[in-house]
């Protein structure tokens, strides 16, 4: 028995080292070939869906034998494992959003909750299905919680607040504007799927990509929000309404005029979005120019230059 445990531990050690090495290798390759960093690593947290699979097999075995209590135990434990893994993964996603944004509210503690559910599932599995004693099962649960904390960490606390030049806290307003803009972009993407025209689809994809770039710039520096108000309130909203309207209408009516008008509108939107992006970049350059000017004047005054 002792030998079996030693072999199992050694096997686990080698397996964990292999998993980490492969992940590291993949992330290095991804960094090399990817221009911009991914929004959320798609494989993160997936391990917790795979590890409890033997509990599912145990439940299937119990069903085969017709052992109802064993089936119930294993099914509840597996359900808890799945729920915990889902919560943890959702928590990781919200954390990635929180990290990406300059202004954000503190996310719901989904990662902590998920870790707690996984710890509970582990303790329950060890006690009811694996027939360990209660204190050992509690140790299993505690160690699983520690493992989740060390691997994934707990949720970030505290909002990333933003105050404008007048010292007024505009965090809620900024978050609302950015969320509305994201909703509009998502609506354009949804409407694009209903349009069966390759040219319009590629144009709309370009428009969405441009809008996302502008939004990323606004997220990086929310001071630009005032300058981009027209883009958010008029152009983006207008683009959404027009695209949704065309997606609804073009299937029922075949009018070349409608297509021409839509093409013209899309061209205008593309131009306006490019202009907006350029404007934001120019503002950044102007800000930098002013900073350089101020610094050089100060250095001249102090006799350094």
């Amino acid at each position: 028995m002792g030998r079996l445990f030693l072999m199992t531990s050694l096997g686990l050690l080698v397996l964990v080292a292999l998993v980490l090495l492969i992940k590291r290798r993949f992330s290095l390759m991804a960094e090399r070939y990817q221009g911009a960093p991914a929004r959320f690593p798609t494989t993160k947290g997936l391990m917790l869906f795979v590890l409890p699979l033997p509990v599912l097999f145990a439940a299937i075995g119990a069903l085969g034998r017709g052992n109802l209590s064993n089936l119930f135990d294993n099914a509840v434990c597996y359900g808890l494992f799945l729920w915990g893994a889902l919560l943890l993964r959702r928590g990781l996603r919200t954390e990635a959003d929180y990290t990406r944004r300059q202004v954000a509210k503190a996310p719901w503690p989904l990662k902590t909750l998920g870790s707690g559910v996984i710890a509970l599932a582990t303790a329950l599995t060890a006690w009811s299905s694996a027939q360990y004693s209660l204190p050992i099962a509690v140790v299993f649960g505690g160690l699983a919680l520690l493992g989740c904390y060390l691997s994934y960490g707990f949720d970030p606390r505290g909002a990333k607040r933003f105050t404008d030049r007048d010292g007024v806290d505009t965090t809620d307003r900024v978050i609302e504007a950015l969320t509305q803009a994201e909703d509009s972009i998502a609506a354009i993407e949804r409407a694009t799927r209903d349009i069966r025209n390759a040219e319009f689809n590629s144009r709309l994809r370009r428009i969405v990509a441009q809008a996302r770039q502008i939004l990323a710039m606004l997220e990086e520096d929310p001071r630009d929000l005032r300058r981009a108000r027209k883009f958010l309130n008029v152009y983006l909203d207008g683009a959404k309404q027009v695209t949704e309207g065309y997606a609804k209408t073009h299937g029922r009516v075949t009018a070349p005029e409608l297509e021409d008008n839509f093409r013209r509108v899309l061209t205008t939107i593309e131009e306006v979005f490019t202009e907006q992006q350029q404007k934001l970049l120019e503002t950044d350059v102007t800000d930098l120019d002013v900073q350089i000017e101020v610094l050089s004047t100060q250095l001249k005054r102090e006799g350094v230059i």
Binding site: L12, V16, P54, F57, A130, Q131, A144, L146, G147, Y149
Partner: peptide, 22 residues
């Protein structure tokens, strides 16, 4: 690494043991 090791050890062993008992 330690976190993953702990998760493999606890969740993995408890799940495998449950299957073995079954």
């Amino acid at each position: 690494f330690i976190g993953l090791l702990l998760l493999f050890a606890t969740v993995g062993i408890a799940a495998c043991q449950a299957m073995l008992v079954s």
